[in-house]
C-alpha cells in the first residue's frame, strides 16, 4: 500500500494549523530557527484580470520517483515500502543540502542539528492506523491521507 498526503487548495485558508500540529508532533524548536515540515502561506495573484488571494499548505510530496533519494550523497533518504513515504535516517547526514538542490518543491531543510529534516508522513502513526498530525488537525479537510 502506498499513501500520499493530498492537498486540496480549494478548501485551504492557510490558517497554519497544519504547521503547528507538525511542530507539536515533531517537537520543532522554532526558537532555534527550525521550521515545521509543512508550511502554510497565502499569496496575491491575478486570474483573468481579477485580483485573488491563493491559500496553500506545502510539504514533501513523497514523489514516487523522489529526486532527493538519488541526490543524497550519504544514502539517508529512502522509501518505506509499507507506506510509500519518503523517509530517512540522518545518522550519516552531512548537512550538504544536496537534497534541497534536488527537490522541486522546496521540502528538505537542514535543522539546527545540522541534519536534514522534512516531512516523513508521520510514518509510524500511519502504520498504526492514525492520520498524520497535519491531516488530523486540519479544520477544513484540505489535507487528506489517501492511497496513492
Amino acid at each position: 500500500m502506498s499513501y500520499k498526503i493530498n492537498f486540496y487548495a480549494d478548501l485551504c485558508v492557510a490558517c497554519g494549523a497544519c504547521s503547528v500540529a507538525c511542530m507539536d508532533q515533531n517537537d520543532i524548536d522554532t526558537e532555534k530557527g527550525d521550521q515545521p515540515y509543512r508550511r502554510a502561506y497565502q499569496t496575491d495573484y491575478t486570474d483573468s484580470g481579477e485580483k485573488h488571494i491563493g491559500y496553500f499548505s506545502a510539504s514533501c510530496r513523497h514523489c514516487d520517483d523522489a529526486p532527493c533519494i538519488a541526490a543524497c550523497p550519504s544514502g539517508c533518504l529512502f522509501k518505506d515500502p509499507e507506506t510509500g513515504f519518503t523517509v530517512y535516517d540522518t545518522t550519516n547526514c552531512i548537512g550538504c543540502r544536496s537534497c534541497s538542490m534536488a527537490c522541486p518543491h522546496g521540502a528538505p531543510a537542514v535543522a539546527s542539528t545540522g541534519k536534514m529534516a522534512k516531512c516523513y508522513g508521520c510514518n509510524e502513526r500511519v502504520k498504526a492506523g492514525l492520520k498524520p498530525a497535519c491531516v488530523a488537525v486540519c479544520p477544513f479537510g484540505a489535507l487528506k491521507l489517501e492511497e496513492a
Binding site: 499569496t43 495573484y45 491563493g54 496553500f56 506545502a58 538542490m101 518543491h105 522546496g106 528538505p108
Partner: peptide
C-alpha cells in the same frame, strides 16, 4: 537561501526546455 535552490533550478530547466511559460500560483507563493 538554499531551500529555494531546487525550485529555482527546476524552473530554470523548465524555461530552457521550453516548458516554463507558466508558474503555478502555489510555487510563486512559496
Amino acid at each position: 537561501n538554499y531551500r529555494i535552490s531546487g525550485m529555482v533550478k527546476d524552473y530554470l530547466i523548465k524555461r530552457i526546455t521550453g516548458q516554463g511559460a507558466f508558474m503555478a500560483v502555489a510555487d510563486m507563493g512559496l
